[in-house]
Amino acid sequence: MSRESDVEAQQSHGSSACSQPHGSVTQSQGSSSQSQGISSSSTSTMPNSSQSSHSSSGTLSSLETVSTQELYSIPEDQEPEDQEPEEPTPAPWARLWALQDGFANLECVNDNYWFGRDKSCEYCFDEPLLKRTDKYRTYSKKHFRIFREVGPKNSYIAYIEDHSGNGTFVNTELVGKGKRRPLNNNSEIALSLSRNKVFVFFDLTVDDQSVYPKALRDEYIMSKTLGSGACGEVKLAFERKTCKKVAIKIISKRKFAIGSAREADPALNVETEIEILKKLNHPCIIKIKNFFDAEDYYIVLELMEGGELFDKVVGNKRLKEATCKLYFYQMLLAVQYLHENGIIHRDLKPENVLLSSQEEDCLIKITDFGHSKILGETSLMRTLCGTPTYLAPEVLVSVGTAGYNRAVDCWSLGVILFICLSGYPPFSEHRTQVSLKDQITSGKYNFIPEVWAEVSEKALDLVKKLLVVDPKARFTTEEALRHPWLQDEDMKRKFQDLLSEENESTALPQVL
């Protein structure tokens, strides 16, 4: 008996699950189920560990084997000379395990699969056993689809999209007709009724959600790893209520002995410091949205989908001078704002400069500016000194954290500008005749005249004003913003236009 009217009423009120309206889709043409990776026989039982391990490696599972009696060998002398080797079968990115008779397991190899009674669906509900069930008529011709799209860092995100009359449910929550939600590992998919569980979705590319604290899981769906560094790992996640993407940084307390840091400095109150950081608001710094204190720290951040500045300059790639100017102007505005709010970044580098898009002209935002507030000064500097390429001379020669101030950030900005303009770092371990530390503390950077011949004198002058060993003589952010190279009204107008595109209400910060 159909429950279409009941569920449609529920759909009209929406769902609290991570779902959002989605535009129309072009329906895929039908194809045989076997060619799409559906096993030839149905099963109602969950797999054992041996079955799972075989399939996850990209080899055929026991459900897909063919009797050897149906095959015969071709003698080598009868092999056609022009026969080309077969292409290897792509490894599946996800697996659906059937929970009921009449449904088959599915190895997801393609990027898009339609499910329903219509014969054009890649996964067609046409098993005779299924057709005899009382629920068969409640399934729509095109009930739902599972697909994946390219996300940040060229990774993939799996989604389920509801197109049914009676509802598609993920972990008992209604997706909603015309809406989608991301699928995470071990999600249970039910059709027409929330208790009519048909599939379990296994994402073969992500970790299980159960490793994360419950308070975090209640608000966010964790997904793929976006990156990792000395101070922690960053994962893509989704807000459950809105389906908006965020980035979540995970900082290990054990790695940084944060408990010991608190004992050594009783004034170090991470929760208080995070609340201060959350109040920071500038178009060129990453917004801190939320914070969870569990076995590790979880910092929920605004997501930038254009990648890191590092990706644009790695491998001796240089940027156009006009692009360097647009990016560097924004970096200076961001660091100036942090300094005005009493925050020294201490870890400025291309990896911590994020881009809003893949376009050459785009907004940038500074991230990882609050680590000293979370990890403690000593722990952070011990970590950073392991990779000193961007560290100021006074940091390398000081004991502990004494003896330096916000000028350290201006040195790091000078190193970043040098790399963007030239395509190579000013200080490098590859210069074996002088140690990296000695290069930095003496201010002897690697200047290649033929490379810098293409760079304007004004740009080079600003680099020199920032890479000054004496912090008292080094340019401040205010002085850098007043430098002739940055007195470019076309560049500032472009920045204002980019801000307006992102948010019509965002105004250009005042600069002296």
Rank of each mutant, 00 (worst) to 15 (best):
83 Q>P: 11
233 E>A: 13
144 F>H: 05
206 V>Y: 00
39 S>C: 15
122 E>L: 15
225 T>G: 05
80 P>Q: 13
100 Q>A: 12
257 A>K: 00
257 A>I: 03
125 F>P: 01
11 Q>K: 14
26 T>N: 04
106 L>T: 14
248 I>L: 15
237 A>R: 00
97 W>V: 10
184 N>H: 14
136 Y>N: 15
127 E>M: 15
63 L>V: 07
264 A>E: 03
112 N>C: 09
259 G>L: 02
197 K>G: 12
173 E>I: 15
243 C>M: 09
135 K>W: 15
178 G>W: 12
189 I>A: 02
218 D>S: 07
35 S>V: 13
125 F>A: 03
14 G>W: 02
193 L>V: 03
196 N>R: 00
96 L>E: 01
260 S>A: 00
236 L>K: 04
115 F>P: 00
122 E>M: 15
78 Q>K: 11
185 N>T: 07
94 A>G: 10
254 R>N: 01
191 L>G: 06
35 S>A: 10
146 I>T: 01
34 Q>P: 11
16 S>Y: 15
222 M>D: 00
11 Q>T: 11
168 T>L: 10
216 L>R: 01
111 D>V: 14
79 E>V: 11
238 F>N: 01
98 A>C: 10
39 S>E: 07
242 T>P: 07
170 V>G: 00
47 P>F: 06
180 R>G: 11
85 P>M: 10
258 I>C: 11
118 D>P: 00
82 D>Q: 08
21 P>R: 06
157 I>G: 05
231 C>Y: 13
7 V>D: 10
15 S>C: 12
169 F>C: 04
207 D>N: 10
216 L>A: 10
169 F>G: 04
26 T>K: 07
52 S>G: 14
116 G>E: 01
81 E>T: 05
263 E>Y: 09
271 E>C: 13
99 L>M: 12
226 L>S: 02
221 I>G: 03
102 G>I: 14
181 R>K: 04
184 N>Q: 14
218 D>F: 07
16 S>K: 03
93 W>Q: 03
209 Q>K: 13
244 K>V: 12
189 I>C: 03
8 E>P: 05
156 Y>R: 04
259 G>I: 02
13 H>T: 10
95 R>G: 04
231 C>Q: 13
170 V>M: 12
48 N>A: 10
19 S>H: 11
42 S>L: 10
173 E>C: 15
74 I>Q: 12
233 E>S: 13
166 N>S: 02
142 K>Y: 12
131 K>G: 14
107 E>R: 15
165 G>V: 08
119 K>L: 09
135 K>P: 07
158 A>E: 04
111 D>H: 10
134 D>F: 13
53 S>Y: 06
115 F>G: 02
252 S>Q: 07
27 Q>W: 08
161 E>F: 03
138 T>S: 11
48 N>L: 09
